[in-house]
């Protein structure tokens, strides 16, 4: 486990395959859980409406819930999964960062998918969740393997940008160099930006001279 929650270097874990395209953030964490003013406590309600038969209510203990038996996260094979395998346009819709918090707090450290919605992709890096983008063919192959009787294990290494299936193939992925550096260092984005406070102030002065009406 990393000490710094914003940091991601490498991770090895089992893969849970969520075979649906266009999964929206309303599904990842339904709105009733957004009433919380805290940053924690969302893991129990990850994919709530798909995971449970009964309607989820804030604070209802897991023991009282009725699981949907054929939902992937309720499958005995994937109980220890910490890598989520998903389809295209993952996490579209609402900007709620709670979706990233819920995935992390449930125990996922990494998502593998062919494409992501922009806001979610951004939010992930601000919380130390690594969204890996692989090709459609690679994702297809992972789905074939991950739905076998035995769960598969992968090792995701950010420094050399690879996803390796234990006793199986290994894929490399692209990631923007800046984002990669930030995840590796686990640096706080606000702290980084505030190092440029002087430049921001200078810009602000010029901007105000040009557009005084923006500062009323």
């Amino acid at each position: 486990m990393n000490q710094n929650p914003l940091q991601f270097t490498a991770h090895t874990g089992h893969v849970a395959p969520l075979d649906k395209a266009n999964v929206d953030t309303d599904q990842i964490i339904p709105k009733q859980f957004l009433k919380s003013i805290k940053r924690t406590g969302f893991g129990d309600n990850l994919f709530d409406a798909w995971r449970f038969e009964d309607e989820g209510v804030i604070g209802k203990p897991l023991a009282e819930r009725k699981p949907v038996h054929d939902f992937v996260l309720n499958d005995a094979r994937y109980q220890t999964a910490s890598v989520l395998l998903a389809r295209e346009n993952f996490a579209c819709g609402s900007s709620r960062e709670h979706a990233v918090w819920a995935l992390l707090q449930y125990g996922f450290r990494c998502v593998l998918a062919p494409s992501y919605a922009d806001i979610f992709y951004n939010n992930s890096f601000n919380n130390g969740l690594l969204p890996v983008q692989l090709t459609h063919a690679e994702i297809d192959e992972l789905f074939t393997r991950a739905t076998d009787v035995k769960p598969i294990e992968v090792t995701v290494e950010l420094p050399n940008q690879t996803v390796a299936v234990t006793d199986g193939p290994s894929f490399s992925f692209e990631i923007d160099a800046t984002r990669k550096k930030r995840l590796l260092s686990g640096l706080d984005e606000i702290g980084l930006t505030l190092e440029y406070a002087e430049q921001i102030r200078d810009f602000e002065v010029r901007h105000r001279q040009r557009n005084p009406w923006l500062f009323e």
Binding site: R96, E97, H98, V100, N122, N123, I200
Partner: peptide
């Protein structure tokens, strides 16, 4: 732009959004 909560905090603190 619609932003996440970490970015809300970032904009509050720095008046800037990290963007490409």
């Amino acid at each position: 732009h619609g932003i996440g909560t970490s970015e809300v905090e970032h904009v509050l603190a720095t008046q800037c959004l990290v963007q490409r």
